[in-house]
């Protein structure tokens, strides 16, 4: 958990925020934490979209309140729209970290977040930079983490249930599960991470992770 888990040798990060001060704080921190990563910056939606079209991004750190182009008024609606577009159409499905003063609008994206192929983490802007780096890790890992104000209760998505059933009731291999559900390898890997998160199974080098998950799922009554 302590090291970046991106498989790219030279991952691309994008930080989108219209406040220069924030960029100046966030970007060096990320560069220090991920020396190999190339950290790009954007201050408005249009620039962010151009970078998205040009680079295979691994992580997008984004503020919801964005201006359409430089010099215009920032509005959370623009950030929300871009985020929605990003989740639907971006080819690389980058991991996402939303850093905003008001993350409540994300509520209406939660059903999409559950099935999003990349990691999705949201945090309040007022949290310290260490917290941001921790959550960036979590997002790169493929996890979903939403504060209580966005998601009032932890959820267990139906797709994840399907993974559990196919694995432990039908005994299918990961490849077979992917084919059955029509999802990418990375997506399934992220589903496993989220199932692990939801069942609160802790990584333990001495224990088999899948067996831990199975036991926890049976205990929770998710599979029979």
């Amino acid at each position: 958990m302590n090291s970046p888990s991106s498989q790219e040798s030279n991952p691309y990060f994008l930080v989108v925020d219209d406040h220069e001060a924030i960029l100046k704080g966030t970007v060096p921190a990320l560069r220090e934490r991920y020396p190999k990563a190339k950290v790009l910056m954007a201050q408005d939606r249009q620039t962010a979209q151009q970078i998205l079209n040009q680079f295979p991004l691994d992580l997008v750190v984004v503020d919801l309140s964005l201006p359409e182009s430089l010099g215009q008024v920032a509005s959370p609606e623009i950030g929300m729209q871009w985020l929605e577009l990003l989740m639907q159409h971006a080819v690389t499905k980058p991991n996402i970290l939303v850093v905003s003063t008001n993350i409540k609008p994300l509520v209406r994206l939660t059903p999409k977040i559950n099935i999003y192929e990349g990691g999705f983490v949201a945090m309040d802007k007022s949290l310290p930079i260490q917290e941001l780096l921790k959550l960036a890790d979590l997002s790169l890992r493929g996890s979903i983490y939403l504060p209580l104000e966005v998601r009032s209760r932890p959820e267990f998505d139906r797709r994840w249930l399907e993974v559990l059933t196919l694995k432990f009731q039908h005994g299918l291999s990961d490849r077979a599960i992917r084919e059955r559900m029509g999802i990418a390898e990375r997506t399934l890997r992220n589903y496993w991470v989220r199932i692990q998160d939801a069942l609160e199974v802790v990584d333990d080098p001495d224990k088999d992770l899948r067996v831990q998950i199975e036991l926890a799922a049976r205990a929770a009554g998710l599979i029979n």
Binding site: P111, F156, A220
Partner: peptide, 14 residues
């Protein structure tokens, strides 16, 4: 009733 619920399986209203 909500206190004991461990698993919320969310709907997809899409």
């Amino acid at each position: 009733g909500f206190k004991s619920i461990r698993t919320f399986i969310p709907p997809n209203f899409e």
